[in-house]
Amino acid sequence: MQILAQLIASGIAVGMIYGVIAFGYQLTFATSKTLNFGQGEALMLGSLVGWTVVAVTGYLIMLPIVLAFGLLQGAVVERLGVRQAIKTKSEAGWIMATIALGIIFKNLAENIWGRDALKFPSPLPEAPLSFMGVNVLPMEVAIVVGALAMMLAVEVFNRRSIYGKAVVATAVDRDAAGLMGINTSLVITFSYALSSMTAAFAGVLVAPVTLTGASMGGVLGLKAFSVAIIGGLSSGMGVVVGGLILGITETLTGYYISTGYKDVPGLVLLLLVLTLKPAGLFGRATIKKV
């Protein structure tokens, strides 16, 4: 029983990370119906840039720098990989282009930071806290709080500020928003920037617990996509629940079956959800118009 509680506790932390990255997928999908296939690489870059900066400045000053870097990186991805493909309505175009950018980022990171995993210094004490026999790392608590805070911040921004309303308007109806004088292509760039920023933030959150390195992104990005699908690409609540489901399933699989198979349940879940209920467990099916 105690082991189970312990596994669930670590599963929650992992799941929140998936949730934040999945939230990033939702941001770009809402405004442009496109996704960044290199989302995992955005996380990885954020984490590695954070690793370099944190040695100089310490954790608190590093955060805004990484967030700014994430914004910039997302905007670059949109300009280079997505904009032209949206114009020509080429689905294969943006899929391939964002994949290509992801490959380039990963390869550059390998050459800059090396291929080995790096230890990210933890800003919080590394001694576990004990709640009723369940050990929880302070950093794991920080992950949950940080992830929720980040999603909340973006949501509040979108709902309260006039710029956020432009984002929401574009998400609801891009053409109508354009006719109302909203620069929708700028909004799309901005949504990519926000999306990469949340991913970069997730990167520095998770790095102290796991390790960081050039190859950390790929699987995280894919599993976060599972979460986005399980939760539904349009449901904010869905990604949190989906993230938790996946995170907990994984730690359980890792413990009870084998760590080698730990990535499998998330992917199988993705295949099952897409086969049986493609709108996601929390999303609503759309009516196709002919």
């Binding site: 990989g81 391939m96 290509a100 992801g102 380039i104 990963k106 390869n107 390998e110």
Partner: peptide, 12 residues
């Protein structure tokens, strides 16, 4: 070392 970068650039 940069083989994959060249790949990526070619795809773009």
């Amino acid at each position: 070392d940069y083989k994959l970068t060249v790949y990526g650039l070619m795809i773009l």
